[in-house]
Design a protein around this nucleic acid. Structure first.
Length: 374
DNA sequence: TAACCTTTGAAGAGG
DNA sequence: CCTCTTCAAAGGTTA
């Protein structure tokens, strides 16, 4: 997979973004689908969804190299477009206040009472009664009224003590929830967080996980490890808390949209939900995706500042994996993804539940997008 | 009980 | 430089 400019590039998207459904079988599915007679509206819609994806992706997910390069050229345009977004947002979008998230400031369209961007209505990220990104932002445990605000910022060498102006602007706390300290660096104390899994405000950072890696919501408040048995813990040798990877754009999108898809679909199986979300992700406009790329970029920036010495490599091997036989699911009859390929559109009664739901969801996506576009 | 499944994207490793 | 692998989330499923 082509690499983004991880350094100064500060990308908003991945280079292969235009190569949709790189995973096995999608190309095959598309071919099969296009071969079917469009006997019902749902099928038509579904096909058109794929067509739109295909057209975005130069007609196929599996193509000769020159086509891929073409994609990358196209994608470069997209990147340029995406790169523009934060520039616009620097003008103040991210200075908008947002309660519940300590670091990331959100563009106005995200605000519960803020203006709604007309471009953001296709797959709305705004949810009733809550901040639209609340479900995806892992920091909703943040308690601005935390009594403990350390005045002593860790002097650990190598840790950035002063947030760049850009960051402090981006991560400016909302008025109602702002800490009494006006020094953003006071929010971040690397050594403190590493030692205790806690944010210097006394609030644990979501990226910090117990060595077990297992999330225990009652103890961690989402991702945050809080020792419940300090004595017992003390006996064990102090293991370094696991600092998780920052979430990428799609992960942020999934966090936000998962509940919505589950509600629409009654499914809870994450594998199926994620398939739906993956397709919906591709159905998003560039602008809509740009929001998440931008959020992810800021996540990475924040993560880098919080844990300058952290590397993704640190977590390699943390998960014990069974023999990952990376089987080609196109040859795996048990793969729920392949029901359409196996049974065809005309025998959807043979499809498993997840596949039926994926299809229904795609139909829904198509309807939404078409409505929005019209 | 813990890995698997499933998705995209980021990052690292290795050829 | 390119390709492959791993890990981020999540929750039902499976070994």
């Amino acid at each position: 997979m082509p690499q983004l400019n991880g350094g100064g590039g500060d990308d908003l998207g991945a280079n292969d973004e235009m190569i949709a459904f790189k995973h096995e079988g999608d190309h095959e599915e598309k071919i099969r689908e296009s071969a079917y007679t469009e006997s019902d509206l749902a099928d038509l819609k579904s096909s058109l969804v794929n067509e739109s994806e295909i057209s975005q992706n130069s007609n196929s997910a599996v193509r000769p190299r020159q086509h891929i390069q073409e994609d990358q050229r196209i994608y470069t345009d997209k990147r340029e477009h995406l790169d523009d977004v934060p520039k616009h947002q620097d003008g103040g979008m991210y200075k908008a206040s947002y309660s519940g998230y300590p670091f990331l400031m959100l563009p106005e369209p995200y605000l519960p009472n803020g203006p709604v961007s007309p471009s953001s209505n296709k797959v709305s990220v705004v949810q009733q009664g809550m901040h639209p990104l609340t479900p995806l932002l892992p920091y909703d445990h943040f308690n601005p009224s935390a009594p403990h605000i350390p005045t002593d910022v860790s002097q650990k060498p190598g840790v950035h003590r002063h947030q760049p102006q850009e960051i402090s602007g981006f991560y400016q706390l909302p008025q109602a929830t702002r800490l009494t300290s006006t020094d953003p660096s006071a929010w971040f104390s690397h050594s403190l967080m590493l030692q205790s899994g806690m944010h210097p405000t006394g609030i644990p950072h979501p990226a910090i996980m117990p060595p077990s890696g297992k999330q225990e919501h009652d103890q961690f408040d989402r991702n945050i490890y809080v020792k419940s048995h300090p004595e017992a813990k003390r006996e064990k040798e102090p293991k370094k808390p696991v600092i998780k990877k920052p979430l990428n754009a799609f992960m942020l999108y999934m966090k936000e949209m998962r509940a919505k898809v589950i509600a629409e679909c009654t499914l809870k199986e994450s594998a199926a939900i994620n398939q739906i979300l993956g397709r919906r992700w591709h159905a998003l406009t560039r602008e809509e995706q740009a929001k998440y790329y931008d959020l992810a970029r800021k996540e990475r920036q924040l993560h880098m500042q919080l844990y300058p010495s952290w590397s993704a490599r640190d977590n390699y091997g943390k998960k014990k994996r069974r023999k990952r036989d990376k089987q080609d699911s196109s040859t795996d009859p048990g793969s729920p993804k392949k029901c359409r390929a196996r049974f065809g559109l005309n025998q959807q009664t043979d499809w498993c539940g997840p596949c039926r739901c994926v299809r229904l969801s795609l139909t829904h996506v198509f309807s939404s997008n078409t409505t929005a576009l019209l």
